[in-house]
């Protein structure tokens, strides 16, 4: 891991812990309350964590450009080293977050089993299902992260109206990945899917890669903005 990536993890460690603790508490309390009034047909963990992680990574993408870029450059780090470190940090975070959803799902399923088994309609946990969840969430996490960074880079490098114009293409990795893959997997939303998983994954990853390249080109020689604070 690079110096920059290690330093970013040091900054984000408490925030990451806080995020997952909050999700766990909300999912546990929500499920407990829900079980009192109705049959639990869904995993609150998957829904909250799955949606939450996308927004969280979007914000990380924004922060990397709007806040951290300047701070690292001010401490003698080159743009290249920062972008590389931020990429490593973002990728590891995306993988970790995407993995946390099936892991938490498994834990939730174990807890249900301990309390006499989940309701019939609860999404059962299986190894294949876990891989499918991860396979949908990872490209989504990457897409949202890259879009967040790319949108902010447009505003950072160009004037506000150019940033606004670039916002539309910059949001493509996020929007297309969401449309093609969703977060619940093929069985949950079959009618909404226009492409089979493999094709959707390819398109999504290609768009994210293109977004990453565009981001790098915008940031590799950008002037360090003069902003107070």
């Amino acid at each position: 891991m690079t110096v920059v990536a290690r330093s970013l993890f040091r900054i984000y460690r408490p925030i990451i812990v806080w995020f997952w603790c909050t999700v766990a508490v909300v999912a546990a309390v929500g499920t407990a309350v829900l079980a009192q009034v109705a049959e639990v047909k869904l995993s609150l963990w998957i829904i909250i964590a799955g949606h939450g992680l996308k927004w969280w990574l979007l914000v990380i993408g924004v922060m990397l450009v709007a806040t951290h870029f300047k701070l690292y450059l001010a401490n003698g780090v080159t743009r290249r080293d920062f972008l590389l470190g931020a990429g490593v940090f973002g990728a590891i975070t995306a993988v970790g977050y995407a993995a946390m959803v099936p892991i938490g799902h498994g834990v939730e399923w174990l807890v249900w089993t301990a309390f006499g088994g989940p309701p019939e309609s609860y999404p059962a946990f299986s190894a294949a299902g876990a891989v499918r969840e991860f396979g949908h969430l990872l490209p989504a996490a990457l897409g949202w992260l890259v879009s967040g960074a790319l949108i902010t880079a447009g505003f950072y490098r160009f004037r506000w109206w150019a940033g606004l114009l670039l916002l539309v293409p910059a949001a493509l990795p996020l929007a297309v990945t969401d449309a093609l893959l969703g977060i619940f997997g093929p069985e949950d939303t079959p009618s909404a899917r226009v492409l089979p998983y493999a094709a959707g994954l390819t398109v999504s990853l290609l768009l994210t890669a293109a977004g990453t390249a565009a981001f790098y080109l915008q940031m590799r020689d950008v002037a360090v903005a003069r902003t107070a604070g």
Partner: peptide, 17 residues
């Protein structure tokens, strides 16, 4: 973007980064 030079350079702006 020269790693050796930039590491040995410190610029403190009045806006404070």
């Amino acid at each position: 973007e020269n790693r050796q030079v930039m590491r040995q350079t410190c610029f403190v702006r009045d806006t404070l980064d």
